[in-house]
């Protein structure tokens, strides 16, 4: 069915539309935040020492070290190092493929999540997101991380539900695809 026909012949079902928006919002958030978190690290920062008597910062310039989450390109870590080590030991996971996957994972999640939020190629973004999760699932099966597999299975079910409801999509920039 063409886009024009779909719009013309399918009356708006608000229950389905609202359900899709919820899925779209959650899956988009999940992808964007997961992608951004791959650029985060806990770092040490210096903050002014505060005099407990006056509540004011020390005029002498004394600083105290505090932990603070820092986002930076240099912090990029696609998956925890312990997991990377396990994947590297798997004969069915070629090193070159792993390298490409690691490079793409964070940026791809951010891109797909933003596409989903904005409604740019919603079906494509959902499907590719699903493929990413399948690839991750394959790795987790090999290293016997069963709880992670179950976790990703829930994501796949939600993506499948979203794809089924995608025809009820409203408020999107590019409805095609």
């Amino acid at each position: 069915m063409s886009e024009q026909n779909e719009t013309a012949t399918t009356p708006t079902c608000w229950d389905a539309t609202l359900a899709f928006w919820l899925l779209r919002g959650w899956l988009g958030l999940r992808a964007v935040m997961t992608g951004l978190e791959k650029y985060a690290q806990m770092g040490k920062v210096m903050k002014p020492w505060v005099d407990p008597k006056t509540g004011a910062a020390d005029p002498g310039g004394a600083m105290v070290e505090a932990s603070q989450k820092v986002y930076a390109l240099a912090n990029y870590s696609p998956i925890p190092q312990s997991m990377q080590d396990k994947f590297a030991a798997e004969p069915l996971l070629p090193a070159v493929m792993l390298k490409i996957f690691y490079v793409l994972l964070g940026p791809a999640l951010i891109l797909l999540g933003v596409m989903l939020w904005l409604g740019i190629g919603t079906r494509v973004s959902l499907f590719v997101q699903g493929l990413l999760y399948i690839m991750l699932t394959a790795g987790l099966i090999m290293i016997k991380a069963d709880d992670g597999v179950a976790w990703l299975a829930i994501h796949i079910v939600m993506i499948a539900m979203a794809l089924v409801l995608a025809k009820h999509n409203q408020l999107c920039i590019l409805k095609k695809w």
Binding site: V32, L36, G43, K44, V45, M46, V70, Y71, A72, L73, A74, N75, I110
Partner: peptide, 16 residues
């Protein structure tokens, strides 16, 4: 010491 890559709130949103 703050890294040269530290994001301010505004800078972070811009970057995201």
């Amino acid at each position: 010491m703050a890294s040269e890559f530290d994001f301010s709130r505004r800078g972070f949103l811009t970057t995201a």
